[in-house]
Computed example of a mutant assay.
Amino acid sequence: NEMAQLRAGKSSKSKLLIAKFKSAKSLKGWEVNQGSYFPNAYASGSSFDEGIDASFEFSEGGQAVFAGFVFTRGGYVEISKRLSLPLGSTLDRYDGLLLSVGGNGRSYVVILETGPLADTSQSKKYFARMTTKVGFCRVRVPFSAFRPVKPEDPPLDPFLVHTFTIRFEPKRQRPGDGTQGATDPRNFELILEYIKALPTGQETDFILVSCTGSGIEPNRREQVLKAKKAGEDALRRSGLGYTIVRPGPLQEEPGGQRALIFDQGNRISQVKYHGP
């Protein structure tokens, strides 16, 4: 039975534990940094510098809490750590990351840094966005979702990853996010339970058939799309490997002229089909 669970990807042993936050000692090596996308934001007397403060501490309630605020224009705060994987383990054997987190429902940027540790000037950074919900949830971030910070850099090679970062920035936050009384999108709280790597080909997949809204009666379309979106969001937060299919209308035209490549979110690209 244990072997069957392992093969199905349901056993915790099938995932690689990257970090588990169970005591104050588990925060060792994590650094809190802050910055701004605008170089003059920190200039003396600048009207843009309204304040940044953040901490990553183990609370009396036994939780690892990354919290604070960012009032400075273009500002951000982040926590980062150089990875220390078990001997013989490399991330190229895995499909992505799984984070068990809680907090007040903010979105964050996950950044992976690659390159030689001895020469950080050669490092390359890759980012992907993750959205949390109020309370606890599991968030799956596939390696395929990461994009290079510099467009000219090659795609992410998980084998070369050496540093992991979680960044909070006020932009892209919705004012309605968060718990009652904490709706200012410049405030945040992220509770971290663990970070794991999802194994290639072993994580159970869930296929959800959603919709694009085509063919639905106009007076019911908004209600149906809202329900479908809620289902998609719940699946994305579940931590499962998933595929979301949104069937569209068929056309009375010959097929096979172009191939569609479906990526994360709503990114769809086309390539011409040249045949065998």
Rank of each mutant, 00 (worst) to 15 (best):
V110D: 05
F168Y: 04
P170N: 10
V161N: 04
L112T: 03
V110K: 03
D153M: 04
I191Q: 02
R93D: 15
G61M: 06
I52G: 04
G102T: 14
G88T: 04
V141R: 03
P276L: 04
S14T: 14
D49T: 03
G176N: 11
A118D: 15
K196H: 13
R73F: 14
R236A: 08
V224R: 01
E203S: 11
F206D: 06
G241I: 03
A227M: 12
K125V: 01
L91C: 09
G248C: 08
I244W: 05
E152V: 03
R167G: 11
K22F: 09
L6G: 03
E50F: 02
D233I: 12
Q257A: 11
G265R: 05
T131C: 01
R237D: 14
G239E: 12
P254K: 01
A182N: 05
T72S: 04
V209H: 06
K150P: 10
L85C: 10
G103E: 10
A43C: 09
R147D: 15
I261T: 14
P249T: 12
I166W: 02
R220E: 11
I207G: 09
L250W: 07
Y76Q: 05
L99T: 07
G265D: 14
E60R: 05
S210D: 06
M3I: 01
F262L: 02
E78Q: 13
A234E: 13
Q264N: 06
L97S: 11
I268S: 00
H162Y: 14
Q180D: 13
R129A: 10
G96I: 00
K125W: 04
S84Q: 15
F136C: 00
F164Y: 12
L16N: 05
L17D: 02
L6N: 00
N266F: 03
S84K: 10
L160Y: 06
W30M: 02
K25C: 03
A8T: 01
T120A: 15
D95H: 08
Q223W: 08
Q122E: 15
